[in-house]
């Protein structure tokens, strides 16, 4: 990744997040390197989609960017300043500016609080409104913004009175209520009805137009990654065992994937066209399962499954190189 003079909204530099776990019955210590040397830039109003299989580290990376997990090493810069070197005021400003939307809209709302209570709390906490009347006005505005109308009706409801899609809209309203510059959206549509999923993504894109929010969108679904990043003019980053193995403009990644892992994933995914989908077959991977993150392979972490593996792949980690403008890949097929 190019290191511009950092006026970017968020920049992660050589970020590592390790978890220490007990291994086996004897309690031998093991390390899971959930994020293992990631560089990532998110510009103001930018869109970055992280896509990968479960266990690739995409959620850990998202939580770390949002300040919910502490990096083991490396840095996160918020508007050019490392978050570990901020004073209290600056740090609070960063925490307000980066909000998160979790996967499960059923678990992320307090069932004993009305929509009004849920949405007014952050407004009060960040002193964005004074008094109940002002809070009500602001909450109504937020509900209109996320398409929950009439707002007077939704304000009084409890989460159990809302559908999954409506709950996720409340969660999104809560995230944007404090005027964040970045929203980390972690699988925001996975638990939503199929017919409503694109509606949630469209809502996030609309909010970006109106409020200038940047997104770090996390998904396991290449179709959703493509839709969100392509419509928003953003990039897709493919993660594997804690590393970004390929990153580039959305359609470029989908139409011309370079990394054997990205190719395998895009080849494998069923598509809503029987003629095309039936021609798909399991890509010739050497192993179906992701290796244990407790003992990832040396060199390129994908080499144990890669159909194109060469001797060098087991020895040295491939660098991330720019193969086409803006399209980077970490693979020895493309690196010298």
């Amino acid at each position: 990744m190019p290191r511009t003079i950092s006026t970017s909204l968020i920049e992660a530099r050589n970020l590592r997040v390790y978890f220490y776990v007990k291994k086996g019955a004897l309690g031998k210590r093991g390390i899971v390197k959930a994020v293992d040397g990631v560089d990532l830039v998110i510009e103001e109003r930018g869109i970055v989609t992280l896509v990968g299989e479960s266990g690739c580290g995409k959620t850990t990376l998202g939580k770390t960017v949002a300040g919910l997990l502490k990096p083991t090493s490396g840095e996160i810069l918020f508007r050019g300043k490392s978050i570990t070197r901020m004073n209290r005021k600056e740090y609070m400003e960063y925490r307000r500016s980066v909000q998160i939307v979790h996967q499960d809209p059923y678990a992320s709302l307090n069932p004993t609080k009305t929509v009004f209570q849920t949405l007014s709390y952050p407004l009060m906490r960040w002193k964005l409104v004074r008094g109940r009347a002002e809070a009500e006005e602001k909450v109504k505005e937020l509900l209109r913004l996320v398409g929950l109308t009439p707002p007077e009706e939704f304000m009084r409801k409890y989460p159990h009175q809302l559908s999954g899609g409506q709950r996720q809209r409340v969660v999104i309203a809560r995230a944007i209520s404090v005027n964040p510059s970045l929203v980390v959206a972690d699988e925001p549509i996975t638990m939503i009805d199929v017919s409503l999923r694109l509606g949630i993504l469209d809502l996030l894109l609309k909010l970006r137009e109106e409020l200038g929010t940047a997104y770090l969108f996390i998904t396991h679904d290449f179709g959703a990654a493509r839709y969100f990043s392509a419509k928003g003019g953003g990039v897709i980053a493919v993660m594997y065992l804690g590393k970004i193995v390929e990153i580039g403009p959305a359609e470029e990644i989908i139409q011309h994937p370079l990394h054997p892992y990205t190719k395998a994933l895009i080849d494998a995914v069923p598509v809503p066209d029987p003629e095309i989908s039936r021609k798909k077959r399991m890509p010739p991977l050497r192993s179906l399962d992701i290796p244990s993150p407790l003992s990832p392979p040396p060199g390129c972490k994908f080499h144990t499954r890669c159909p194109d593996a060469m001797p060098v792949c087991a020895e040295k980690e491939p660098p991330l190189v720019e193969v086409r403008p803006g399209h980077y890949v970490a693979c020895w097929l493309y690196a010298k």
């Binding site: 009805d193 199929v194 409503l196 999923r197 694109l198 679904d221 959703a224 839709y227 989908i254 809503p272």
Partner: peptide, 21 residues
């Protein structure tokens, strides 16, 4: 069929179904 975000077809033609079940 149109509401499925997919890796094939045009992104412009994909759209959600209005309303809810």
């Amino acid at each position: 069929i149109k509401s499925i975000p997919s890796v094939i077809g045009s992104v412009e033609e994909m759209k959600p179904i209005p309303g809810s079940p």
